[in-house]
């Protein structure tokens, strides 16, 4: 076999390996229900903040405990506990999508990461005002 063929084969092999292991590493977007069925697994859950008045974050008591309620895309609602400070931009982004990463624990979703997508809320709000 020619050396170039070996190199080519090697590259293709690496390519396949890279794709396979990316898929392997990739987390899954799921609903609270699936997360509850597999409490040992970590999931990405996309949702919306509900019951904003039930949000718990009192830095005087604990700066690393943040609790809120999230409704996933299928409509199921669960309490989410995040063991970090409340993100700086949470209030700003809470109306857009929230993605929490973690697993279901006793009666709440135990999140160790949260992504809030910056929405164009900043623009929309002003426009909404104009429409009034």
């Amino acid at each position: 076999m020619k050396k170039s063929a070996i190199i080519l084969l090697l590259l293709v092999g690496i390519g396949v390996f890279v794709v396979m292991s990316s898929v392997q590493d990739a987390s899954t977007y799921e609903s609270f229900q699936v997360a509850a069925e597999n409490p040992e697994k970590d999931y990405h859950i996309v949702g919306k903040l509900v019951f904003p008045e039930r949000m718990v974050y009192d830095p005087k008591v604990d700066a690393n405990y943040f609790e809120f309620w999230l409704q996933d895309q299928k409509g199921a609602v669960s309490k989410v506990v995040l063991h970090q400070g409340k993100p700086v931009d949470f209030d700003r982004n809470a109306q857009a999508q929230i993605v929490v990463v973690g697993n279901m624990s006793d009666g709440f979703f135990d999140a160790d990461q949260m992504l809030t997508k910056c929405p164009s809320k900043y623009e929309d709000e002003k426009k909404a005002n104009l429409k009034k």
Binding site: V23, Q24, A26, S27, T28, Y29, E30, H44, V101
Partner: peptide
């Protein structure tokens, strides 16, 4: 599980 994620449109970025 990998196939399900791949073809289910459910791949999320790695944790």
């Amino acid at each position: 599980n990998a196939l399900y994620k791949f073809f289910g449109g459910k791949l999320a970025p790695p944790k």
